[in-house]
Structure formats: structure tokens, C-alpha cells
Design a protein around this nucleic acid. Structure first.
Lengths: 180, 180, 180, 180
DNA sequence: TTTT
DNA sequence: TTTT
């Protein structure tokens, strides 16, 4: 509700691939997309045109996740507003690794209706804006859950994840997430 | 000069430690700071107050780097605007690692003059705003350099870093940077 | 809930005077502040230092209005995020006039505790952030009201103001608002 | 170069009409566009869908003005970043009036190439981003001019406009600008 | 991996 | 590691 400081990210870019939606034990949806922004400039020395593409890992939760999963596609142009969040995870060697993501609290599709790659069914959705209820502090675990989840750090602001990264052969595909 | 997409970050937070300034072979300054933003909320279940602090790695170049290095101190409250940039580096095992930074193109000190931890000399600076010349596309390597530098990926938008992470016992403290 | 387009304003500035809080018939609070941002530069011709101050009319509603009214004072430095809104009103000659305001949906005090001009009582508040519930679409008139109100245009997004600017001698101090 | 405070506006919207480009005595271009952003929501009382459109007056200077004038058209969807500026002018009765504009320092077209209303000639431009040189403090009058110009208040940050709104029958179509 |  |  209150906060000290501002942590705001604004992106406009294109999806590098279709969004990936998963469901948490609580039933809430989580959608990940990889978003490209690029800048081009002329080299001051050689005058050669240069380009650099930056890839952003964007995470949507709950209702935004469902909308993103349903309407976004590879190539979609989208506006995203959110906050930066770095979560810690462990690689297969047990080493700490960090991944920085943009946790979206607003999203707007910028493609004209009908030109999203192969997407054009029903009410479409066309261009529309969607805002996360709850001011970006949504805790998708709020409705109770019992199973541990490695995704938790990126979603639970409390950081009080029980049993995170359990020892033993717990198979969890989230664990295999390699950043980018 | 032109760009496709928007990549914008806006932060207000406090420095967790004094800034660290280094100089590139070209003579340009590079300053790193670690910036905390925090948010607090009440747990919907228990009603308990919660708090989460996010740490941001911010990089300033050239003139902004010099100002940041001179006027910011541990505890300083600051406004930073910049863009997200993820750079790839190799850990001691030769494994690819990624660090996401905010490359600042604007900075404003938000402390009242005289209360920056121990800082109060001369013209002071008090509160003031500073903007990066060149629209955030500064290439501090533009004036030629011959030595390899592991910081390069975060500064050179071309991504054409020669000799990055040299094999052999080249001692370079930049290489030892562990994110956060 | 949904929206087409983005309308976002981010300000950091100082209050030119104490905030003014009023209450709507519905009981909701409305607080107006005048916020200064300034920029300085050197004249390219003469090299003379120049400065320009811009005054922004910021409006807070409901809970944000109460907090702003209670904690902000002339001189307070504050972060405000909101959206632009231009409302139409009629001057004493019956001519249409327009005033553009920033309808705030987030506010953070940036003064250190205790240095807000003469303000330091009780729990203080010090630095804290506050967000408007309801995603900035708060309609302070939602809880029913019967009397017309000239402030309505700036608060009711529906634009369906009944009886706006009533003919006759209806005394309403809001009508006398001269922008800036 | 330096500044105290932050004054930032971010808009995504559609043009309500073709842009209007004029040239200042200095030779610099000035382009005005009217940009619509809209938000929709459900009335909490009646559940009725509501919509409100906000119209923004955006001003581009110099190179941005030329690009905007050349590539934008009625209906174009565009991203604009800039700062708020309120300029004072006098209506035909000599009364002070105020108009708030967004002085753009960055612009990006968000339409797919070829779908801009009737616009598709030559190199097109497609989607591209443009940034104002000079950090948004461009003074288009810097190169000397002698004639008064009613547009000056919106462009000259110094506010030192000589002969503004000359008495007498000086015909200047800028003077007749009625906001929105 | 996107987009032009 | 900051801040309240």
C-alpha cells in the first residue's frame, strides 16, 4: 500500500516468441514473455549505422497473465509498465544466480486489430489496455498453497518462501529456467 | 539517434553504499551505485505489515559518472532515469552469467543540502539535476582504446567487444564483479 | 478498467503554497496543490544562466487528498504521478475556459522527516508513499449526490455532468477558481 | 543542462487531425498535433460502460516538428514523451488566458507501415523513433529574430519575450488559437 | 527470439 | 548495503 521509493519501468517492444503461461498451485496464472527493444545510432568514428537489441523478461500475474497469454503472440508489439524485480535462484551446481524481471502491472497491445500473427478470432481484443488490480502488489499465493514453488521469489513480495529450492530430486520445470 | 521501442526506467531510492568510480582507458568515468527501493504492504491473510527491498545496480558514464561519484554518498536519496541493459559476463568457471543494470541518463539528488552523509563542502551541489549529453547513447569507448575491459558490455551498445574476458592471468578487478 | 492509450505524468517539485482541501457533497476530499518544477540552462548566445519555473496544478482525491492535505506544506518536495485532465469551466462572462490539471494517483513525500516547513507533529509521516485505490479511476461522486458541482468536470471521467454551471445566482466558490 | 525537479509526460494516443506545421522567423519548424487518449470503465453504481477521451495539445520543435509534420496523419497512433508547459496568451478582449501543452522531446510512430491513414509514399518511415537533440531545452529562437511571435511563450524557456501580444491590429493567426 |  |  505504501512504499518508499519509486521503481518503475516502461517498455514498448515486440515479443520474441509466443508467451508462456503456467498456473500456480493457487490457481493464479503466470505468463512470461521476452520483449525486445532496440536502438540504432551512427558510430561517431566510422559513421556506420549500429543497432543493439535489448531483451527484457516480463512477467504477468493473474488476470493480466491470462490476457497476455491469450492475446499476445510472437511479434506482437506491446506497451508494458511494471517494476523491476531481481529474484535469486540456484543453478544445477547449487550456485546462486540472479534474474531481473519486469513485473508488469499494466499492458496495452499496440498492434492494429487483425494483424497479430495469426490471431484474429472472436471478440479479438484488438487494442486495449489492462491494468493489474491491486496496484502491483498482487500476491498470487494469498489464497493458500502447500507446495513449494521456485517461481515464488518473483511473485511473493514477502520473500517468506518456505522450502524454497528443496533439496532432493523434486522435479520442477520452473527450476530449469535459464535466464534469457 | 533513432530507436524502435521504448526502454525506460525511473527510480527513486537510497544508496546502499558509497558510489564506486573507475576510469576507462579512454579516460571516461564509470560510476556504479547500488540503489534500494522498498515497498511495504499488509498481508491480506494475517494483516501483518510486510516489507520488501529491491536493489538496483545503476551505472553512470562520463560526466554523470563524475557528478555521481563526487556528490552521492551511502544513504543519499536520488532520482535516476535510464534504460535497462543486460550484459553477459563469464564467471570463474567460464559459465555465462547475466547482469541487468540501469544505465542512467538523468540523475537528481533529492537530499536537502547539507544532510548528505558527511558531504557539505564548497559549492556543494545541494539538489540539482544532471542529464547525460548525447541522449543516453554515449559510447565511452568511442575515442579509441586498446586494452580489454570487462565493463565494456554494459557501455558499448555495439556489443562488438574485442578480447572480452581474456584467458590467462590478466588481473582485472572488474572481472570479479558478482552481481549484487 | 481498460483503456486505450497512455496518459501519464511524473513530477518532482515543490509546493508553492499550502494545499487546499475541500469536501465534496459525497464526503470525499479534494486537495489542490500548486507544484513548481524548474529548469536552468545557459543561453547559447550569451552564455547567461537562465531559469524557468513551471507551475503545475495537481489534484488529489479521496484518501490521497486527505494525506496530501495533512502532510504537505508550502515548500514540500514531492513526487507525483498521475494523468492529464483538461476541464472546461465558464468564467464570469459565460465564456468557456479550460484548465489542465494533473489528477494524481500516486504521491511520495521527498523531504526528510522534520524539515517540512513547520510540520512535525505526531506520527509525522515523514517520507512515505501513497497510492490511490482503484487505479486512478476513482469517481468521488459515485456515492450519490444531488447538488451540482463545478469541480465535477475534473473528477468525473464520464463527463456527464448534470446542471453544470447553473444559471442563476448559485453561489459556489469553486466557480471562482482562476487557473494558476 | 541542470534542472530542479522532474517534469515528464508520457502519452500514447491517436491524432485527431493532421498535424499543423509552421515555421518560425528563425527557420525552425513548429508542429502542433491534437492527441487523444481514452479510458473506459464500468460505472460502480449502474454497471454501465463509460468512456472518456482526453485531448492533449502536443508541440514539436525543429527536427521533431519536421518529422511529425511529414509522417503523422489524422488517426496515427503515436508515443510522445515530453514536458508540461503552460503558456499565457491574451484573448481578443485582452484577458489573460492559459494553455497547457506537452512539449515533445521524443516521438515514436506506432502504426504498422502502410496503415497510416492514406500515407504511404516513398521511404515511408514506417515505425521509428526520434529524439530531440539538446535534451528538450531547445530554444528555436536562439539564432536571432526580430519579429514578435505569439508562439514564443511555448517555446522560449527564458520567458523573456519582447513585444508579446502587440497592441494594434497586428494580424497573427497564432493569436487566434483557441485551446482545443 | 522480435521489429524495420 | 539504504531509508522510515
Amino acid at each position: 500500500m505504501a512504499s518508499r521509493g519509486i521503481n518503475k519501468v516502461i517498455l514498448i517492444g515486440n515479443l520474441g516468441s509466443d508467451p508462456e503461461t503456467r498456473y500456480m498451485p493457487s490457481g493464479g496464472a503466470v505468463t512470461n514473455v521476452s520483449l525486445a527493444t532496440s536502438e540504432s545510432w551512427k558510430d561517431k568514428q566510422t559513421g556506420q549505422p549500429q543497432e543493439r537489441t535489448e531483451w527484457h523478461r516480463v512477467v504477468f500475474f493473474n488476470r493480466l497473465a491470462e490476457i497476455a497469454g491469450e492475446y499476445l503472440r510472437k511479434g506482437s508489439k506491446v506497451y508494458v509498465e511494471g517494476r523491476l524485480q531481481t529474484r535469486k535462484w540456484q543453478d544445477q551446481n547449487g550456485q546462486d544466480r540472479y534474474t531481473t524481471e519486469i513485473v508488469a502491472n499494466e499492458m496495452q497491445m499496440l498492434d492494429s486489430r487483425g494483424e497479430q500473427g495469426g490471431f484474429n478470432q472472436g471478440m479479438g481484443g484488438g487494442q486495449g489496455g489492462y491494468q493489474q488490480q491491486g496496484g502491483g502488489q498482487a500476491d498470487p499465493y494469498a489464497q493458500g498453497r502447500s507446495a513449494p514453488s521456485p517461481m515464488a521469489p518473483s511473485t511473493n513480495p514477502s520473500g517468506q518462501q518456505p522450502n524454497q529450492a528443496p533439496s532432493g530430486g523434486f522435479d520442477n520445470s520452473f527450476d530449469d529456467d535459464i535466464p534469457f
